[in-house]
Simulated assay, not measured.
Amino acid sequence: MPASLRLALRGMAYNNAWANHRLLTACAALTPEEFVAPRTGFFPTLRATLNHILVIDRFYIDALEGGTLGPRAWADPEPCRSVAELHAAQAATDRRLIAWCDAMEEGAADRIIRVHRGGHVQEERADRLLLHLFQHQIHHRGQAHAMLSGTSVRPPQLDEFFAEGEAPLRAAEFHALGWTEETVWRD
Protein backbone atom coordinates (compact mmCIF):
# COMPACT_ATOMS: atom_id res chain seq x y z
CA MET A 1 0.00 0.00 0.00
CA PRO A 2 1.38 3.43 -0.81
CA ALA A 3 2.55 5.23 2.31
CA SER A 4 0.17 8.10 1.53
CA LEU A 5 -2.89 5.79 1.61
CA ARG A 6 -1.73 4.11 4.83
CA LEU A 7 -1.15 7.50 6.45
CA ALA A 8 -4.54 8.79 5.27
CA LEU A 9 -6.43 5.76 6.63
CA ARG A 10 -4.51 5.88 9.92
CA GLY A 11 -5.20 9.62 10.16
CA MET A 12 -8.88 8.98 9.57
CA ALA A 13 -8.94 6.34 12.32
CA TYR A 14 -7.33 8.74 14.78
CA ASN A 15 -9.57 11.63 13.71
CA ASN A 16 -12.57 9.34 14.13
CA ALA A 17 -11.56 8.47 17.68
CA TRP A 18 -10.85 12.09 18.55
CA ALA A 19 -14.23 13.25 17.20
CA ASN A 20 -16.00 10.49 19.16
CA HIS A 21 -14.09 11.53 22.30
CA ARG A 22 -15.01 15.20 21.84
CA LEU A 23 -18.68 14.46 21.17
CA LEU A 24 -19.05 12.01 24.06
CA THR A 25 -17.18 14.36 26.42
CA ALA A 26 -19.70 17.07 25.56
CA CYS A 27 -22.59 14.62 26.05
CA ALA A 28 -21.27 13.83 29.54
CA ALA A 29 -22.51 17.29 30.58
CA LEU A 30 -26.10 16.36 29.69
CA THR A 31 -28.57 15.25 32.29
CA PRO A 32 -29.70 11.63 31.90
CA GLU A 33 -33.08 12.99 30.83
CA GLU A 34 -31.53 15.12 28.07
CA PHE A 35 -29.53 12.13 26.82
CA VAL A 36 -32.70 10.09 26.23
CA ALA A 37 -35.09 12.91 25.31
CA PRO A 38 -36.83 12.51 21.93
CA ARG A 39 -35.10 14.49 19.19
CA THR A 40 -35.34 14.89 15.45
CA GLY A 41 -32.96 12.51 13.68
CA PHE A 42 -32.71 9.15 12.00
CA PHE A 43 -32.66 7.63 15.51
CA PRO A 44 -34.98 9.20 18.08
CA THR A 45 -32.47 10.10 20.83
CA LEU A 46 -28.83 10.96 21.35
CA ARG A 47 -28.39 7.67 23.21
CA ALA A 48 -29.85 5.67 20.32
CA THR A 49 -27.78 7.53 17.71
CA LEU A 50 -24.48 7.18 19.57
CA ASN A 51 -25.16 3.53 20.39
CA HIS A 52 -25.82 2.92 16.68
CA ILE A 53 -22.34 4.25 15.87
CA LEU A 54 -20.85 1.86 18.44
CA VAL A 55 -22.84 -1.17 17.26
CA ILE A 56 -21.95 -0.70 13.60
CA ASP A 57 -18.31 -0.04 14.49
CA ARG A 58 -18.24 -3.35 16.34
CA PHE A 59 -19.80 -5.09 13.31
CA TYR A 60 -17.24 -3.80 10.79
CA ILE A 61 -14.19 -3.89 13.04
CA ASP A 62 -14.96 -7.51 13.89
CA ALA A 63 -15.00 -8.25 10.15
CA LEU A 64 -11.68 -6.43 9.66
CA GLU A 65 -10.21 -8.56 12.45
CA GLY A 66 -11.43 -11.75 10.74
CA GLY A 67 -14.35 -12.37 13.09
CA THR A 68 -17.80 -13.69 12.33
CA LEU A 69 -19.93 -11.54 14.67
CA GLY A 70 -22.22 -10.48 11.85
CA PRO A 71 -25.79 -9.41 12.69
CA ARG A 72 -25.34 -10.49 16.33
CA ALA A 73 -23.60 -7.10 16.64
CA TRP A 74 -26.96 -5.35 16.63
CA ALA A 75 -28.93 -7.85 18.74
CA ASP A 76 -29.03 -5.11 21.38
CA PRO A 77 -29.32 -1.79 19.53
CA GLU A 78 -28.55 0.19 22.71
CA PRO A 79 -25.99 -1.81 24.69
CA CYS A 80 -24.85 1.25 26.66
CA ARG A 81 -27.39 2.99 28.86
CA SER A 82 -25.27 5.92 30.11
CA VAL A 83 -22.87 8.37 28.48
CA ALA A 84 -20.03 7.11 30.69
CA GLU A 85 -20.61 3.50 29.65
CA LEU A 86 -20.91 4.51 26.00
CA HIS A 87 -17.78 6.66 26.11
CA ALA A 88 -15.71 3.78 27.54
CA ALA A 89 -17.11 1.26 25.04
CA GLN A 90 -16.61 3.60 22.05
CA ALA A 91 -13.05 4.41 23.14
CA ALA A 92 -12.22 0.70 23.33
CA THR A 93 -13.73 0.14 19.88
CA ASP A 94 -11.86 3.14 18.47
CA ARG A 95 -8.58 1.71 19.85
CA ARG A 96 -9.30 -1.55 17.98
CA LEU A 97 -9.80 0.35 14.73
CA ILE A 98 -6.62 2.37 15.26
CA ALA A 99 -4.68 -0.82 16.03
CA TRP A 100 -5.95 -2.41 12.81
CA CYS A 101 -4.96 0.66 10.77
CA ASP A 102 -1.59 0.91 12.56
CA ALA A 103 -0.83 -2.70 11.56
CA MET A 104 -1.57 -2.19 7.84
CA GLU A 105 1.21 -3.36 5.61
CA GLU A 106 1.90 -3.35 1.87
CA GLY A 107 -1.16 -4.67 0.05
CA ALA A 108 -3.48 -4.39 3.08
CA ALA A 109 -5.85 -2.05 1.26
CA ASP A 110 -6.50 -4.72 -1.37
CA ARG A 111 -7.07 -7.46 1.20
CA ILE A 112 -10.53 -8.99 0.95
CA ILE A 113 -12.56 -8.71 4.15
CA ARG A 114 -15.39 -11.17 4.74
CA VAL A 115 -18.41 -9.39 6.22
CA HIS A 116 -20.90 -11.85 7.71
CA ARG A 117 -24.38 -10.50 7.00
CA GLY A 118 -26.55 -13.38 8.19
CA GLY A 119 -27.81 -15.01 5.01
CA HIS A 120 -24.61 -14.36 3.06
CA VAL A 121 -21.00 -13.30 3.36
CA GLN A 122 -20.08 -10.09 1.57
CA GLU A 123 -16.52 -9.76 0.32
CA GLU A 124 -15.14 -6.23 0.31
CA ARG A 125 -11.70 -4.71 -0.11
CA ALA A 126 -10.30 -3.37 3.15
CA ASP A 127 -9.87 0.19 1.87
CA ARG A 128 -13.48 0.33 0.67
CA LEU A 129 -14.78 -1.09 3.93
CA LEU A 130 -12.76 1.47 5.92
CA LEU A 131 -14.03 4.34 3.80
CA HIS A 132 -17.61 3.14 4.31
CA LEU A 133 -17.04 2.86 8.06
CA PHE A 134 -15.58 6.37 8.31
CA GLN A 135 -18.44 7.79 6.24
CA HIS A 136 -20.96 6.03 8.48
CA GLN A 137 -19.31 7.54 11.54
CA ILE A 138 -19.30 11.05 10.10
CA HIS A 139 -22.92 10.76 8.97
CA HIS A 140 -24.30 9.74 12.36
CA ARG A 141 -21.94 11.92 14.41
CA GLY A 142 -23.31 14.83 12.41
CA GLN A 143 -26.83 13.85 13.39
CA ALA A 144 -25.81 13.58 17.05
CA HIS A 145 -24.05 16.94 16.79
CA ALA A 146 -27.25 18.54 15.48
CA MET A 147 -29.27 16.89 18.25
CA LEU A 148 -26.80 18.19 20.84
CA SER A 149 -27.32 21.73 19.56
CA GLY A 150 -30.91 21.45 20.85
CA THR A 151 -29.72 20.87 24.41
CA SER A 152 -28.13 22.97 27.13
CA VAL A 153 -24.66 21.77 26.00
CA ARG A 154 -22.76 23.51 23.21
CA PRO A 155 -21.71 21.04 20.49
CA PRO A 156 -17.93 20.70 20.14
CA GLN A 157 -15.94 21.44 17.00
CA LEU A 158 -15.53 18.13 15.15
CA ASP A 159 -14.40 18.95 11.64
CA GLU A 160 -10.96 20.46 12.15
CA PHE A 161 -8.57 17.78 13.26
CA PHE A 162 -5.65 20.18 13.60
CA ALA A 163 -7.26 23.61 13.83
CA GLU A 164 -4.96 26.58 14.27
CA GLY A 165 -5.05 28.08 17.74
CA GLU A 166 -6.23 24.86 19.39
CA ALA A 167 -2.79 23.46 20.15
CA PRO A 168 -3.19 23.59 23.98
CA LEU A 169 -6.68 22.03 23.88
CA ARG A 170 -5.55 19.44 21.33
CA ALA A 171 -2.49 18.57 23.42
CA ALA A 172 -4.67 18.09 26.52
CA GLU A 173 -7.18 15.94 24.63
CA PHE A 174 -4.43 13.90 22.97
CA HIS A 175 -2.82 13.40 26.37
CA ALA A 176 -6.14 12.09 27.73
CA LEU A 177 -6.27 9.70 24.76
CA GLY A 178 -2.62 8.65 25.18
CA TRP A 179 -1.46 10.21 21.90
CA THR A 180 0.76 12.93 20.55
CA GLU A 181 0.74 14.45 17.08
CA GLU A 182 3.78 12.27 16.37
CA THR A 183 1.71 9.18 17.28
CA VAL A 184 -0.93 10.15 14.74
CA TRP A 185 1.33 11.20 11.88
CA ARG A 186 4.30 8.86 12.17
CA ASP A 187 5.06 6.76 9.12
Rank of each mutant, 00 (worst) to 15 (best):
V36M: 10
V36S: 12
A37K: 09
P38K: 01
R39L: 04
T40D: 14
T40N: 13
T40K: 15
T45D: 11
T45F: 10
A48P: 06
L50M: 08
N51M: 07
N51S: 09
H52K: 05
H52G: 02
I53P: 02
L54G: 06
L54N: 07
I56W: 09
D57A: 00
R58G: 02
R58P: 01
F59N: 05
Y60E: 04
P71W: 07
P71S: 03
P71I: 00
R72A: 15
W74V: 09
W74H: 12
W74A: 08
A75L: 14
A75S: 15
D76F: 09
D76I: 11
P77R: 03
P79Y: 05
S82I: 03
S82T: 15
V83H: 01
V83A: 00
V83T: 05
A84T: 13
A84R: 13
L86R: 08
A88S: 04
A89L: 03
Q90R: 15
Q90S: 13
A91C: 10
A91L: 12
T93Q: 15
T93M: 14
T93I: 13
T93P: 10
D94C: 03
R95F: 09
L97I: 00
L97S: 06
L97K: 01
I98G: 09
I98K: 09
D102I: 08
A103C: 00
E105V: 15
G107K: 02
G107I: 04
D110L: 15
D110N: 14
D110W: 12
I112R: 13
R114A: 13
V115G: 00
V115I: 08
V115T: 04
H116F: 10
R117H: 13
R117M: 15
G118T: 04
G118R: 04
G119I: 09
G119F: 10
G119N: 11
H120V: 03
H120P: 00
E123N: 09
R125M: 14
R125C: 12
R125L: 13
A126L: 04
A126E: 07
D127N: 12
D127P: 08
R128G: 15
L129V: 05
L129R: 10
L130Y: 04
L130G: 06
L130S: 05
L130V: 00
L131G: 11
H132S: 08
H132Q: 11
F134A: 02
H136S: 01
H136D: 06
H136K: 06
I138A: 12
H139I: 02
H139D: 08
G142T: 05
G142C: 01
Q143P: 11
Q143G: 12
A144P: 04
A144S: 00
H145L: 09
M147V: 00
M147K: 07
M147C: 03
L148H: 08
G150W: 09
T151E: 02
